[in-house]
Structure formats: C-alpha cells, structure tokens
Design a binder for these strands. Structure first.
Lengths: 248, 248
DNA sequence: GCAAAAGTGTTGTTTTTACACCCATGT
DNA sequence: ACATGGGTGTAAAAACAACACTTTTGC
C-alpha cells in the first residue's frame, strides 16, 4: 500500500466514523463552470473506478441544509460567498442501490457493517451554481481521486442518478439564468454587454442578435451603464455595465 | 379522560413508537382547494392548541419520497392518483425548534425521552397540488383534532415555518399553473372555457378578458374542442374542451 | 322578441425580430 | 483611410389588449 493510499484510507475512515450527520440525507451540487463560450460541470472521479459523481456531501445535525451545500462547494473549490440555488430533492428508494460506496470501501480495505449509514438509502437535495471555471482550483474528497470539468454534452459514466440530477439542474439554470446573473458569481462587477450575451448564449445554447439582446436586457432595468472600456482594440469601445443593487 | 382521548393517545403512541421512518425528514403538502372562485388551503388543527399546520408526515425507510407525499395526501383526503409537484425543501436548523410536538405529547400524557426522533430537527420536502375542495372529505391524523380549508389570504396561526412553505407553494403553483391544469385533478375531463378561465383567475388572482383568454389558451394547442354543452340556460351553449394527451 | 352568455372579428398598441446605418478606435 | 466591432434607428411581423358585433339558447 502506497503512502497516498494510507492517507486516503485515513480520511475515508474519518468520514465513515462521523456520527453527527443527518442520516439518509445528502446534498449534491451541480456546479456549472463557464469560460470561453463553453459550459462545463465539475465532477469527481471515484478511486479505482471508471465512475464519476457530482460533488456532494452530508449534512451535520446542527447545520442548515443550505450551509451544507455551501460547505460542500467550499471543500471542492475553496470558493466562498457563492450564489447557490436549491432546485430539487431526489428521493427514489433505489437511487443509491448500486453499492458504489461498498465497493469503494472494500477496495481500500475498510470494513463497515452491512447496516452502516454510508450503505443506507439516501435522499439528496440538489443545488446548482454558475461560476467561472478558469478561476477555481478543485480539491477531491476522500471518496474521489480527482476533479475535472466536463462539457455538458459529453459526460462520463455517472454514479447513482447523477445524470438525472444534472439534467434537472441544467433545466433549472436555464429557467433561472436571470436571477443567477444578477447574483453573479461569474461576471466581474463591471462587464460589457457582449460578455453578458456570451454567457446567455452558452447557458441557453442559442444565439441572439447583438442589438436585440441589448434592448431586451436593458428593458429589464437591472443594469446601470458605466464608463467605456478601452482594451486597445481598433474599434469603438463598449460600455461597461453593472447590476443595480437596490438598497432602499 | 374521555374515550376519544384514549383513542388519540393510542394512535399518537403508535406513531411515536414507529421505528422505520427516515430520521429527521418529513414531507408537507400544500393542498390548494378550488371551488366557486375561491382558493383555499387544507390545514390541520393541533389538539388543544390554537395552532394549525400543513398536512405532513414522515417517510418510511423503504418508501420513495414522492410516495410518502402521496400517502400523506391519501391519509388526509382519501384521494388517489393526484398530481403532486415537489417544489422546495426546507432545511433551517431551527425551523422546528419551538417544541410544538413536545407540548402536544405532554398534553396527552405521553412521555418521550429528550432525544426521541419526534423532537429532533426536521428537514421537510414541500409538495403541492390543486384539487376541487368540494369533492373531498378530510380526515385528521393523530396530532390533529380537525381539518379545515382556509382562504389563502386569511390563514390562522401556523406552526413551524409553515407560513413560509405556503408562500413558496403558492408561488410555485402560480408559475406552474399550466402543467397543473394539464395533469388536472381539478377540472372534469370535459370542461368549458369559462371553467378553465375561472381557475386561472382564482389561482393567479387577476381577471382576464373572455375572448383574449380563449385565444391565448387555444394558441397553446393543448386543447381539443368537443361538442357543445347544454345546461338549459337561456343562452348560447359553450363548447366543451379536453386536454390533448399525446400518445405517440 | 328578449336577455344572457358564448363565439368571432377588428382595430390600435406594444413587443419582438430582422436589417441597416452610423460611430469610435488603433493601425 | 480603413477595417473592426459597438451603438442606435427603423420597418416589418408578431403578439397582445380593448372593444364591437354576431350567434345561440330558453323563456
């Protein structure tokens, strides 16, 4: 057994031995990452298996459900103050019935009794967020050997019902892109109309006309026009915009 | 102690003694009842308290989460095959921290230890539905002495965070009234345009013009026009409609 | 024939879409 | 000056809203 493996075994054992989680409940995060016109999802690869999962975790007995989601996101990305939206709770009895956890533990020579909580049925609450994946590092957890970003249209083999969760998360973020953008974790405070348009186009998967897009967005009165932005390119400089945060 | 009270104590004890519920998890149903232009919500009154709650219940270990919601609805209304939509999961730590359950049990002279599951923190999954409240009877559960329908704008004192759950449920049903109507538990199979319009107006809380409403609805191509409906009134008979169920 | 309520038509307005033109900028 | 990309204007089309008129029904 390599040194690495010892560490993994240790942190796995620690997780398994934790007694103060809410039983049968987990949270899973669909973290959409955007950069250069591409929409990706953050996934974790299980040790020694050709199987991936969403970043997820358990809820402490004295922890707000939403905070558990924030914590999970923090543990995988070290991002804080991120806008996370709950979108659905998945509660099929058989959704975790394919003993992924059992195999993983066996592979690491960790014994757990048949009725250990980690092997029970889990109900999971799905959260999603939209961030710039070029800005974050990723940190695998005890169950997983690596993190990676995958294009939505080209996902690897997923554990449990995570395909379904992703589909529902994508649907949610498309329906709620406006609220996601206002509370934006993605764009800098000041941004150009073209940057905003590219996000919309990438998330929604359709193209818009420059001028009509601008009209539509400005009609919502949620943007404030600022100074022009000179990047040295040989053309007219675009305006910068900022979301209006109403504090009255 | 009255005979009634003995029965109540018995069923309460039975509930308390149940060992195969998922811990710390519940479902709550916001049942919107519609009849004669009024939108109401089904609520339960706790024994000996001036306090009401949504019909809710717990999830069995071997039960699909959605099925638990169906079961709860069945237990309170004896309705089956109802279209229920999950809308949000409520997970604040302190949402059940006002010892309503403790007081109720004490009132009925039932002793439970401080760490009994019924006194723990609960995360609850909210479901909602739209039914015709003139067609259903209601049946209280062990915790509650009576059921009643309340107008959305005139709710009694609610337990826990049930006000918040109702608000979110109302928001959900307003946003999703079209899907609720298609899978309708409310209208008979054949209905007139006026009946449909009245539901929309009552749920959304705004009036529409007869002709424009008809145009908008028919433009969705989800309705099939059937024969005319003669009710004996001295005016032109309206057409009946049916939702098109595509089976291809 | 009449009142009541449903169906249909028509007109003006607003919103959406597509296209055109003008403007600022660095080379 | 010129290519590039951004801002703005405008006309056609579509969607929506308000109103008017016609039709059907039982008395």
């Amino acid at each position: 057994m390599k040194i690495d493996d010892t560490k993994i075994k240790q942190s796995l054992q620690e997780l398994i031995d934790t007694k103060d989680f809410v039983q049968n409940l987990s949270v899973d995060c669909v973290i959409f990452g955007f950069h250069d016109d591409i929409l990706k999802i953050l996934l974790l690869k299980y040790h020694d298996l050709d199987l991936w999962s969403l970043p997820g975790g358990f809820v402490f007995n004295d922890e707000h459900l939403d905070d558990a989601a924030f914590r999970v996101l923090y543990e995988r990305t070290h991002l804080e103050n991120i806008f996370l939206q709950q979108f659905h709770t998945f509660g099929r009895i058989d959704r975790t019935e394919n003993n992924v956890h059992e195999i993983l533990l066996k592979n690491k020579n960790i014994d757990v009794s048949k009725d250990h909580w980690i092997l029970q049925r889990f109900i999971t609450v799905g959260y999603c967020s939209l961030i710039d994946f070029s800005l974050v590092d990723t940190f695998p957890d005890a169950f997983n050997e690596s993190c990676a970003w995958f294009e939505v249209s080209d996902l690897p083999k997923m554990a449990f019902d995570h395909n379904e969760i992703i589909a529902k998360g994508l649907e949610h973020i498309r329906k709620n892109i406006d609220t996601q953008m206002v509370a934006s974790n993605l764009l800098p405070e000041k941004f150009t109309m073209k940057e905003l348009q590219t996000v919309y186009e990438t998330v929604l998967g359709e193209k818009f006309r420059r001028n009509n897009f601008q009209r539509k967005i400005l009609a919502e009165n949620s943007l404030e026009r600022l100074e022009k932005f000179f990047d040295g390119s040989p053309n007219k400089a675009p305006y910068l915009y900022r979301f209006i945060t109403e504090e009255e």
